[in-house]
Simulated scan of single mutants.
Amino acid sequence: MQLYNTLSAKEREKLIEEAGKDRLTISFYKYAHIGNPHILRNHLFITWDQMDVLGRIYVANEGINAQLSVPAEKFADFKNYLDSISFLENVRLNIAIEQDNKSFLKLKVKVRRKIVADGLNDATFDVTNKGIHVGAEEFNRLIEDPDTVLVDMRNHYESEIGHFKNAITPDVDTFRDSLDIIERDLAEHKEDKKLVMYCTGGIRCEKASAYYKHKGFKNVYQLEGGIIEYTRQVREQQLENKFLGKNFVFDHRRGERISEDVISHCHQCGKPCDNHVNCANEACHLLFIQCEECAETMDQCCSVECQEIHALPEEEQKQLRKGKGASNKIFKKGRSPILKYKR
């Protein structure tokens, strides 16, 4: 039984180009109590592999988190399959604002301890006891209320290129870092303020809303469907858009333009820019913001050292990488000391 990819990313990319057919980038999540995530994982892989679905999916005892690329012509079959799984029936699907047929080039379905790493080991914490979900119109009203505290539940490199007006944007590297920081900073407002949260598609602030209710916050809200769904509703209902800049996404695109505001800067020269790239040196692969001029000057690399390595023949680069683990810089997401204008 095949439970792994047989094609490389480059081979898959070529097939997608030759097919010339549209694909949809979709994400969804669902917190639920799953008894045997390994069985579900295998079932999902077999079925979606046959549908030519690609993407990154995490399954755990607490639920599922999926980011996918689905052939447009097979969307109905994909949706019917989801509806055949009891806890996924009518699950909300976030369809990307900007489509890219190459957003994912492999199908990866992995079993994890949690679908969102939170560092929590509290058995009394029930992730399904979530806060109040609100749509774009109600969200806009809430965040204008002086009794509301608006919190961005994403990481620093995400909020750097885009966030809601007047939002608290914790300077954190991971979701688990933000949970305790926010509870500490807002401890005196557990009863007198409305705690309103948002994230990319809703999965992180749903867990956070349950966590803060568990910690005693009385009025907890989250933006239904996150920034992705907010943008769709704003455009369909012609509402005022209160989001500035780009929404960072975790696929090949790395970002969706929500407003024309550019609120961040190139990490190498300081010019206004909000384009995330990965260093072209495969041994580095650092995620950072780079403008077109610096990309040309630096050959899409983060440093002169990486530029020199990237200029070597591919075989020499492979020999340099041989036997070495991934550089820790990849996890710094724009915090590397080599970046002069980092946040």
Rank of each mutant, 00 (worst) to 15 (best):
K190W: 01
K114Y: 04
R112V: 04
D147N: 15
I181F: 04
Y211F: 13
M1L: 11
L7G: 04
D152F: 03
L44S: 01
K106G: 02
K242W: 08
F243M: 10
F45W: 09
R343S: 14
V262A: 06
Q50P: 00
K165Q: 14
G255D: 03
P71D: 11
V59H: 02
H276P: 05
R113E: 07
I46D: 11
G119Y: 06
E296Y: 06
L244Q: 15
G119P: 07
L244R: 14
V134D: 07
P170F: 04
S327D: 15
L68C: 15
R343C: 09
F45K: 09
D22K: 15
D177P: 04
G131N: 10
Q222F: 03
E305M: 08
L44C: 07
C205M: 09
R335F: 03
G135R: 13
N5M: 10
A66F: 04
I161R: 09
R184Y: 10
R41S: 11
H285L: 12
F125T: 02
K190A: 07
N241P: 14
D177W: 07
L195A: 06
C266M: 03
P337M: 06
G245Q: 09
L320G: 02
Y157I: 03
E89F: 02
G63I: 08
H38E: 13
L142G: 03
D83V: 12
D118E: 05
E315C: 03
I57R: 10
R257K: 15
D261E: 15
P313H: 12
T6D: 11
N65P: 13
N129W: 01
R56T: 04
T6N: 11
F28S: 03
N65H: 02
S178M: 08
F164D: 06
K242D: 13
F217G: 04
S103L: 00
V53Q: 02
S69N: 13
I181C: 03
K246T: 05
K207V: 04
K10W: 06
E73T: 12
L244N: 13
C273V: 10
E229H: 15
L287D: 14
N101I: 06
D118K: 02
I46C: 05
A9T: 10
N36V: 01
M51W: 05
K322H: 07
E160P: 04
E282H: 08
D100R: 13
L150C: 03
I289W: 02
C284Y: 00
C306L: 04
W48K: 00
